[in-house]
């Protein structure tokens, strides 16, 4: 059974329907990319999973239905949603951001060890731990957002455009870290990304969204070779 299963999920912002029945799944240990143009419904799909937007259809996570589950309960069940714009707690210190990441956990001793785990992935955060999170650069804030989500020991990470506004070199290293987190911590990742080439490079499978619908899905390597996808989304 898949870790996450969406069946004909719809979502709307007031009168505007943003998703018209998304069906997809994420297996244990997988990295899945959600591709598509602006406004295709990528971000809304993540919001529908964590419950941050009114949704219809069925979302099942870890064998249980998510119907009627509040956002904070979704987090407690193991969904780590790194939102668009990173959700940095700007006035709080880097350290407090990470402590808040571990908010749902009750295993204090393991939490202490996990600070070192995330600092090993993102050494820059260790040196900046007393700083206000708002004073970090965009790239550092993105690292902090991922590190914070990781502190919750989620089963599934929802990453919304981790590359947005970052220098290409930095993006590359963040994606490498995402991959090693996926492998070492056995965290599944659902990745929303505008940069399709990058996403297909790191993901196992991918879904292509258009105006709130899944139009193509497949192995990431197959999709990277697909002529029409290459022309429309990869630009070469």
């Amino acid at each position: 059974m898949a870790l996450l299963e969406l069946d004909k999920v719809t979502a709307e912002y007031g009168p505007i329907k943003a998703l018209h029945g998304i069906t997809l799944k994420v297996e244990q240990g997988e990295i899945v990319a959600l591709l598509g143009a602006n406004g295709a419904g990528k971000t809304t799909t993540l919001r529908a999973i964590s419950g941050s937007v009114a949704r219809g259809g069925s979302v099942r996570f870890d064998g249980r239905s998510m119907a009627g589950v509040a956002v904070h309960e979704a987090a407690q069940r193991g969904i780590g949603h790194v939102p668009e714009g990173r959700g940095t707690l700007v006035q709080l210190s880097v350290w407090d951001n990470l402590r808040m990441g571990a908010y749902t956990r009750r295993d204090g001793r393991q939490v202490e060890k996990d600070y070192d785990v995330v600092f090993d992935y993102f050494p820059i955060l260790r040196t900046r731990r007393q700083q206000a999170a708002g004073s970090l650069s965009g790239g550092e804030q993105q690292m902090l957002a991922i590190a914070r989500a990781l502190m919750a020991r989620p089963k599934l990470l929802l990453l919304d455009e981790p590359s947005l506004g970052l220098a290409p070199l930095l993006v590359k290293s963040i994606f490498q870290i995402v991959r090693s987190i996926n492998r070492n911590e056995s965290v599944a990742v659902l990745l929303v990304e505008q940069n399709a080439a990058l996403a297909l490079n790191v993901a196992h499978r991918a879904y292509l969204l258009e105006t709130g619908r899944v139009v193509t899905e497949g192995q990431a390597s197959d999709m990277a070779r697909d002529e029409s996808i290459r022309r429309a989304y990869l630009g070469y």
Binding site: S52, H72, A75, Q76, L92, M100, G101, Y103, T104
Partner: peptide, 14 residues
Amino acid sequence: TAALYPDSARLLGV
């Protein structure tokens, strides 16, 4: 956190 950043707080399980 809940007072300053309610949306982020919810995503963190608060």
